[in-house]
Computed example of a mutant assay.
Amino acid sequence: MTTPSQWRKSSFSGGGEGNDCVEIANRHTRVAVRDSKAPARATLSFPPTTFAAFIEDLKTRR
């Protein structure tokens, strides 16, 4: 998978440099996810509907 050019961190990524989080990037047909502490390592990708369902589930578990 090619590396997405526009990575975003969560607003809940912690203090300091905000490196205690994952980053996401929207692709044409996938959502890419990587560890902000190790951006050169493996990247996961998910269909947008699957990723959206995952996020909604996280929100309801708060």
Rank of each mutant, 00 (worst) to 15 (best):
R34E: 11
I55S: 01
T2N: 05
P4G: 01
D57I: 03
N26K: 15
A53P: 04
T60F: 04
E17I: 00
S45H: 11
T3N: 14
S13G: 08
R30W: 03
S10T: 10
R8I: 09
A38Q: 15
E17S: 12
P4D: 10
N26D: 15
A40F: 07
R34A: 08
R61I: 07
I55K: 09
P39Y: 08
R41F: 07
V22D: 02
E23G: 08
I24N: 04
S10P: 00
T60D: 08
T29W: 02
E56C: 11
P47T: 12
F12C: 00
D20K: 05
V33I: 13
T50I: 08
E56A: 14
S5C: 06
G15V: 10
T2L: 13
A32N: 11
L58N: 05
R30F: 02
D57R: 13
D20C: 03
R8K: 08
S11Y: 03
S45M: 05
A40P: 00
A53W: 02
F12D: 06
F12W: 13
P48W: 11
A25C: 02
E23K: 12
S45N: 05
P4M: 12
K59S: 07
T49H: 14
S5Q: 14
W7T: 10
G15M: 01
A25L: 01
S10M: 11
R62S: 14
K59N: 09
L44N: 05
A52Y: 02
R34P: 10
R34T: 14
K9E: 01
K59P: 01
D20H: 09
V33S: 02
S36D: 13
L44H: 13
R62W: 06
G16K: 05
A40I: 03
T60P: 00
R34Q: 07
D35I: 11
H28T: 10
T50Y: 01
R61P: 02
G18F: 03
R27T: 04
G14W: 02
S11F: 04
A40R: 13
R27G: 11
T60M: 10
I24L: 08
P47N: 12
V33Q: 01
A32I: 06
D35S: 12
S11T: 14
F51G: 04
T2M: 12
W7D: 05
A40W: 01
T43Y: 00
H28A: 05
S10I: 10
A52D: 13
L44G: 06
M1Q: 13
S13M: 10
A32T: 10
R41G: 15
A32R: 04
R30C: 07
D20W: 06
A25M: 03
S5G: 14
S45R: 02
L44V: 00
T43S: 09
V33C: 07
K9C: 06
G16P: 00
S5P: 00
I55W: 03
T3P: 00
W7A: 11
K9P: 03
A32L: 04
H28S: 12
R8M: 05
A42K: 02
G18C: 04
T50G: 14
S36M: 05
W7Q: 12
F51Q: 04
T49A: 15
I24H: 03
A38C: 06
